[in-house]
């Protein structure tokens, strides 16, 4: 379970200029739940995702995942937490464009130095599941937007994480590819992953497999 308790996040642009991204919010997401955070750009959706993934720390309040206070984790432990629990699908994919599909997907495993057979097994599972196996050796920068996103999804799932986080996943896709992504989400939901999606794309609203839609406005959750 993911719990955000009295979270405030303030970004300091400079000494006199501060932006309140989140203002004392509380949120609970159950295991296996698929939650869509919706709201305009700059409403604070991405900041929530960033805190859940321990990519940043709250100014005040606590983020608790499975009883672990992840907002208090030292940097190295936060990395390990991300590696073992989080699959993050970024808006701009955040792939290394000059590496191959395979090299990008296995990146989270590299520091673990696993056996080659172990890597190959995991790679086969995700590339087949997300239909990118035929492009394994292609260089990422030569792929289409949809293919790049599938690589990003495969990378996010290579460690079989419990939590999948997607930040504006369809922002760079056309409608057909966006619908394809939604189908992928449905598959991940079947696998009992906890999924949090931040989007303002109307295609995500009113989907039958989405458990909750939460609106974020000006750093607050709209009840």
């Amino acid at each position: 379970m993911i719990e955000l308790k009295n979270i405030t996040k303030i970004y300091e642009i400079n000494k006199s200029d501060k932006v309140i991204a989140l203002d004392d919010i509380n949120l609970r997401i159950k295991e296996g739940e698929l939650v869509v955070l919706k709201g305009a750009s700059g409403s604070g959706k991405s900041t929530i995702l960033s805190l859940i993934a321990a990519l940043s720390k709250p100014t005040s309040g606590e983020v608790i995942v499975d009883t672990k206070k992840i907002s208090k984790l030292p940097d190295n432990f936060a990395s390990v937490y991300r590696r073992d629990n989080i699959g993050f699908i970024f808006q701009k994919y955040n792939l290394i464009p000059t590496l191959s599909v395979k090299e990008n997907i296995i990146l989270p495993l590299v520091p673990l130095n696993p056996d080659a057979s172990d890597i190959q097994n995991k790679l086969d599972i995700v590339t087949n599941r997300f239909n990118i196996s035929h492009k394994e050796n292609a260089i990422v920068r030569n792929l289409s937007g949809g293919e790049q996103q599938r690589v990003a999804i495969a990378r996010a799932n290579i460690n079989d994480p419990k939590i999948i986080i997607a930040d504006e996943p369809t922002a760079n896709l056309d409608e057909k590819l966006s619908l394809h992504f939604i189908e992928i989400l449905r598959e991940l939901k079947v696998l009992n992953k906890t999924i949090v999606v931040a989007t303002h794309d109307p295609l995500f609203f009113g989907l039958d497999f989405v458990d909750r839609e939460i609106e974020v406005h000006n750093g607050k959750i709209v009840v």
Binding site: A53, L55, D75, N76, S79, V80, R82, R83, D84, I86, F88, F90, N94, L95, I96, L107, P108, V110, P111, R155, N159
Partner: peptide
């Protein structure tokens, strides 16, 4: 910088990056 950020975001520790 961005590459280091990506590596950290997908679970690399500081010492993995430095190694």
């Amino acid at each position: 910088k961005r590459e280091i950020g990506i590596l950290k975001a997908i679970g690399w520790r500081v010492d993995d990056v430095l190694k």
